[in-house]
Computed example of a mutant assay.
Amino acid sequence: MATNEQKTAYALFTVLSFGLVGVGIVLPSWIAFQVGGSKLVGLVLLTSSFAGVLLAPAAGHLVDKYDRRVMSAIGQATRASAMLLVGFADGSSALVGEILLIVSGVGGAFGFAILSGSLAGLLQRLVPTEERASFSLRMSVAKQIGIACGTGAAGIALYYLGSSSAAYLFSAISFVCMGLLRTLPTSQSHSRGTATEGFLASNLEALRYFLRHPECFAAVLFTGLSYAIIQVTNLLLPGFVTNNLHGDSSLFGTLEMAAALAGAASALLLSGRRVAELLRQRMAPILVISALSLIAFSFSQTPLVAVITYCASGMLWSVSRSLANANFLIVIDTQMVGRAQGFSTLLSSAFGGIIYLVPVTLPAAREADLYVGCGLAIIFCVVLVRLLATSRSIAADE
């Protein structure tokens, strides 16, 4: 039985860990721009995304093979080391700096993939099934707070300490945070994992598991689709503000702030155990409504209407993403959570790649039209996944 101290340590470690996510949004990009301009920033981000796709299955295998508490520490240490490389890159020559930043991006993506799966497994150990939906909604708010604090702290540290010192500081903080993991329990007896075979056999076992349990595969896909909704608006919003609303950066910032605040507030208000579980059981309709909100926002013609619509949309996106994560943690068996998280990360990265290529493949399309098209595509995927999962479940029962 998990104690309140263990749950508090888990929550605090998660907040601090996502604070490093916020730092990673600001600090590496700033240093990369100083070293090699916007071209290097794009290269680092692209490399990091590809690393997420390629290394996520390996991370999932490791999480299920070894103790989750140990793997959490390894994932955090990998991310902290990646941040240390960012600091070294600032004072190096151009070529060495570019190499260090690219390696840092790959290491950070791999470390985050390991940490995501490990934390999911630890949460399953700490929180009973009936409380996970509620706990996940509260943790989603905590993660948003961590990211916001991390981005702000990175900006302040850059101003007062400089690039290298700021990177060294956050790397040290990341290492220190690992002490919180000592409070958490090991995930298996004798610290042994459940993936006892090699990498290929282990992931084939996971694929067979998904085929036998269509609801589990649906949970993985729904998690990826919930993030795809966010990726769509992250891509299209700047152009929509400029071309459709004829606004500037102040309107863009207002929209993002309103959506973030409304999203965090809605997740917190709906985090009661009974309400969260009730909503979690209606995952597919909520995802459809969230995708419809993309279409609704595309019809905004004035800044006031856009702010109101985007605020409501932010509430739906935050809740749907939190519920998708909660559903994942409830439906997926503990022994498979690492590999399932790896597949989820792979799908999220793949969906992101497809979405980010849309403006390239359809250069003449307006942002409003792309909002509608992406919204309809996500709805189609949700309905298709739901129908396939239901049909396979019925076939399995028969």
Rank of each mutant, 00 (worst) to 15 (best):
A201G: 10
V331I: 14
C149W: 03
T254L: 13
W317I: 14
T254M: 13
A377S: 10
V220C: 06
G52Y: 00
F170W: 05
G150P: 08
L46Y: 08
S48V: 00
G107K: 04
V382C: 11
A265Y: 10
V358S: 09
A291P: 08
L278S: 12
G353E: 05
A94L: 11
L122A: 05
G162K: 10
F18P: 04
L384G: 05
F175R: 01
G272H: 05
V23E: 05
I378T: 05
G272L: 01
N327R: 05
L279Q: 04
A56K: 03
T78L: 14
A201M: 11
A306L: 03
L95V: 13
N244K: 11
A89M: 01
L84W: 09
R132D: 04
A77N: 14
I230N: 08
Q76P: 01
C216L: 03
A306Q: 06
A326C: 01
D397W: 04
L126S: 00
A312G: 14
P359H: 04
C149H: 00
Y227M: 06
E277I: 03
F110V: 01
S293I: 14
N325H: 06
G152T: 07
C216G: 12
L181F: 02
G353K: 05
A113W: 00
I295N: 08
L169R: 01
D90I: 02
T233Y: 15
I230C: 00
A395F: 07
Q144I: 06
V337F: 03
M71R: 10
R273F: 01
G24I: 06
D248C: 00
L169M: 12
E215H: 14
L388G: 04
S226L: 04
S29K: 10
L237A: 10
F33H: 13
L40D: 01
M1G: 15
L269R: 08
F13L: 03
A389P: 09
A89Q: 01
H246I: 00
D397A: 14
E256G: 07
F170L: 06
I102R: 08
G253A: 11
A142Q: 09
A11P: 04
A260D: 04
F217I: 10
M336T: 03
G22L: 01
I147G: 00
L85N: 09
L376H: 06
V305F: 05
S81V: 08
G22Y: 02
G272M: 01
E98D: 00
G111D: 07
R274M: 04
E398N: 13
P128V: 11
A201T: 12
S116C: 08
S29F: 06
Y371I: 11
R68A: 12
L268G: 13
S116Y: 10
R280L: 06
L287Q: 02
F222R: 03
R79G: 15
L84C: 04
Y227R: 07
L119H: 03
V383M: 07
T14H: 12
S174M: 12
I332V: 15
